[in-house]
Design a protein around this nucleic acid. Sequence first.
DNA 1: GTGCTTGCAAATCGTTTGCAATAGC
DNA 2: GCTATTGCAAACGATTTGCAAGCAC
Lengths: 135, 135
Amino acid sequence: MNAYTQLKKHNIKPSIQRIEIMNYLLTHRTHPSVDEVYTSLSKNMPTLSKTTVYNTLRLLSEQGAALMLTIDETRLCFDGDTSPHTHFFCKKCGRIFDLPLTESLAKQIGKIDEGHMITDVHYYYRGICKDCLTD
Amino acid sequence: MNAYTQLKKHNIKPSIQRIEIMNYLLTHRTHPSVDEVYTSLSKNMPTLSKTTVYNTLRLLSEQGAALMLTIDETRLCFDGDTSPHTHFFCKKCGRIFDLPLTESLAKQIGKIDEGHMITDVHYYYRGICKDCLTD
DNA sequence: GTGCTTGCAAATCGTTTGCAATAGC
DNA sequence: GCTATTGCAAACGATTTGCAAGCAC
C-alpha cells in the first residue's frame, strides 16, 4: 500500500508533506521519533517544519493510519504498521523491535472491556536487547 | 503488605519520604502522576520536594516496588500494584483503569523473547471509558 | 475568496540536573 | 565523620500554541 492510498483510506487529505511523512513511516520500519522523521525528510524538503511533522504524525495516529507508541518514556515514536503486533523496547540502546503477536494473544483483543470502548491495543515489553546483551 | 516491608523487600533504604510515597501508592490505586503524589503528600509534609517524589518513584520502579506507566502520553503514572494486570486509559477523562489479565494472556508472558531479555511487560488499552461514554 | 495547511517563533510544562544543606549510621 | 538523601533553583527538551503567510479547490 502506498502513502497516498493509505491517507485516502483514512480520510486524510493528501498534501505533499503528509504524503512524504506517511511514506517515510511505510518505508522505515524503525519506529522513528518525530525528530528522526523531521531530520531525515528535511534533507530533501528544506522548508519542512517540525510543527508540520508533529501535526501530521498526530493526525495519522488519530485517524488510524499509524500507531503512536508511548513505550519510550522520553519521546513519542510512530509506527506505520498498524497490523497487530507487539513492541520490545531496549532500555540500553533505546531501539524498539517488533515481536510477533501469538495467536492466543491476538484472540484476547477486544475480549476484556468491562463496558469501556477500546480503540487501541498496545502490548509492550521492555528489557535489554539481544545486541546489547552480548556487548 | 505495608510500605516499610515493601521497601525492605526491594532493597530500598526506608526514609520518611520513601515510606510515605510507597504508602501513598499502596493506599491509592488511582495510578497517580508525580504531581498527584506530590500535591497530596505535601499537605502533611510541607518540606517535601517534588524532586524527591521524582527520585523516589523512579527508584521504586527501577527496584520493582512499583510500576511506571507510560500509557498516558503527557505524563508518567505509577502503580503500587505490581501483580500482573492490564491498564485501560480513557482518552477523554485521562483516568487509568485496571483490567484483569486473562489466564491465556498471562501464559504468554515471557514466551515471546527472540533472544532479548524481557524485564517488563505492559498490556495497554486505550479508548473511552464507561463513564465518558454515557455523558 | 474561503477554508484548510504550513511554518516560524515563542511559550509551556513535565522532568532532570547541579549542588549545597541535612540526616542517619 | 562519612555516606546517602533531600530540597531548592535553574536548566533542559520535547511538545504545543498563536498567528501570519501560503496553497487549493
